[in-house]
C-alpha cells in the first residue's frame, strides 16, 4: 500500500511538471506583449526594453521556463502585472474563501446526495424515487447561475434570511453553497442510486439478510461500502471542481474566490496571475485524483491487493 502511494506520488510529480510546461507554452503563444499591456501606450521603446529586461522576458524561452520552474519550486509564481501582489499571496488569500465555499457545498452535496440516492434506490419505482429523480434532473440541468439568482430572489430579497452577495458573515456562504451544492448533490444522488441498485441485487446482500441482519445493517454495512467506488470517483472530480472555484457562482454572489480571480486575470491579461491559477487548478485536480485512487484501495481490498502485487 505504501509502495503504491509512493508510486502515485511520483507520477503526480511528472503530471505537475507536464502541467507547468503546458501552462508556460500556452502563456507564451497567447497573442499580445505583456509588457505593452502593462505599460501605457505612450511608453518609450527604451522603457519597454528596460521592463522586459527587469522581468527577464528578454532571456531565451528555455531559460525563462527553467526560471519559472525554479521559482515555482520555491513557491514563487511571480507578481501580478497590475497589482504587483505576489501571485502566491493572492492565491492563498482567495483559496481561503474558495475553501469555505467549497467545503460547505461539498458537505451538502455528499450528505444529501448519498442519503437521498440510497433512499431512492431502496424505494425504487415508488413516489419518493420519482421525486428524487425529478429533483436530480432539475439539479443537473438547471444552470447554476439561474439557481443562484432564484435563491437570491427568494431567500435573500423576499425572505431576507441571507445576504445576497459578499462575504461579510458566515451566513453569506449559505446561498452560494446551496446553489453549488444542489448541482453536485444531484449528480452524486444519481450515481449513488444507480450503484446501490446494482449492489442490492447481489448475492451477498441476500446472504446478509439470510444471516438475520436488520435492514439498516444490510444497507449501511454490506451494500453502501460496495456501492462507494463510483460515488468516490465522481466525488473526487466534484471536489476538484469546487476547489478550483465556481466562476459563475462566485461572480453572481460577488465572492472573491479563485474562480473570480481566474476570470479577472483573463479579462485583464494578467499573465503571471493566470499562469498561477492554471497551475493551481492542475495541482488541485492531480491531488484530488490521487486522493480518489488512495480511497479506492482503502475501500476495496481487491484493488488494494492488486495494487500491492
Amino acid at each position: 500500500m505504501i509502495v503504491y502511494i509512493l508510486k502515485r506520488l511520483l507520477q503526480t510529480i511528472f503530471v505537475l511538471w507536464g502541467a507547468s510546461l503546458v501552462t508556460f507554452i500556452l502563456m507564451n503563444v497567447l497573442p499580445g506583449d505583456p509588457v505593452r499591456l502593462m505599460l501605457e501606450k505612450r511608453a518609450t521603446p527604451q522603457a519597454v526594453e528596460r521592463i522586459r529586461h527587469e522581468m527577464g522576458l528578454d532571456k531565451p524561452k528555455i531559460t525563462q521556463y527553467l526560471d519559472f520552474v525554479k521559482n515555482a519550486l520555491k513557491l514563487d509564481l511571480g507578481r501580478s502585472y497590475f497589482t504587483r501582489e505576489p501571485v502566491m499571496t493572492a492565491l492563498s488569500r482567495r483559496f481561503g474563501v474558495t475553501l469555505r465555499l467549497a467545503s460547505s457545498a461539498y458537505a451538502i452535496a455528499l450528505v444529501l446526495g448519498i442519503s437521498i440516492g440510497v433512499l431512492s434506490a431502496l424505494q425504487r419505482g415508488r413516489a419518493l424515487d420519482s421525486a428524487v429523480r425529478g429533483v436530480a434532473v432539475l439539479g443537473i440541468s438547471a444552470p447554476v447561475f439561474w439557481v443562484a439568482i432564484i435563491l437570491q430572489m427568494v431567500f435573500g430579497l423576499r425572505l431576507g434570511w441571507f445576504p445576497i452577495s459578499g462575504i461579510r458573515s458566515a451566513g453569506s456562504f449559505v446561498l452560494p453553497a446551496a446553489a453549488l451544492g444542489l448541482r453536485h448533490m444531484a449528480s452524486i444522488s444519481r450515481v449513488t442510486r444507480t450503484s446501490m441498485l446494482e449492489v442490492i441485487s447481489q448475492d451477498y446482500i441476500r446472504t446478509a439478510r439470510a444471516k438475520g441482519l436488520a435492514e439498516n445493517a444490510v444497507i449501511l454495512k454490506h451494500a453502501l461500502k460496495n456501492a462507494l467506488i463510483p460515488i468516490i470517483t465522481l466525488a473526487g472530480t466534484e471536489l476538484g471542481d469546487l476547489l478550483t472555484g465556481s466562476m459563475l457562482t462566485e461572480w453572481v454572489f460577488a465572492i472573491p474566490g479563485i474562480g473570480k480571480l481566474m476570470v479577472d486575470s483573463i479579462l485583464m491579461r494578467d499573465l503571471p496571475m493566470l499562469q498561477g491559477t492554471v497551475l493551481y487548478v492542475a495541482v488541485v485536480f492531480v491531488l484530488s485524483n490521487l486522493a480518489v485512487d488512495i480511497s479506492y484501495a482503502f475501500i476495496d481490498p481487491r484493488i488494494r491487493y492488486a495494487k500491492s502485487d
Binding site: Q202, D203, Y204, T207, D300
Partner: peptide
C-alpha cells in the same frame, strides 16, 4: 447455504 460461493460472500469484508 447458497449455490454460488463466488458471489455470496461480501467482497469488501
Amino acid at each position: 447455504i447458497f449455490q454460488e460461493p463466488m458471489t455470496s460472500l461480501n467482497p469488501v469484508l
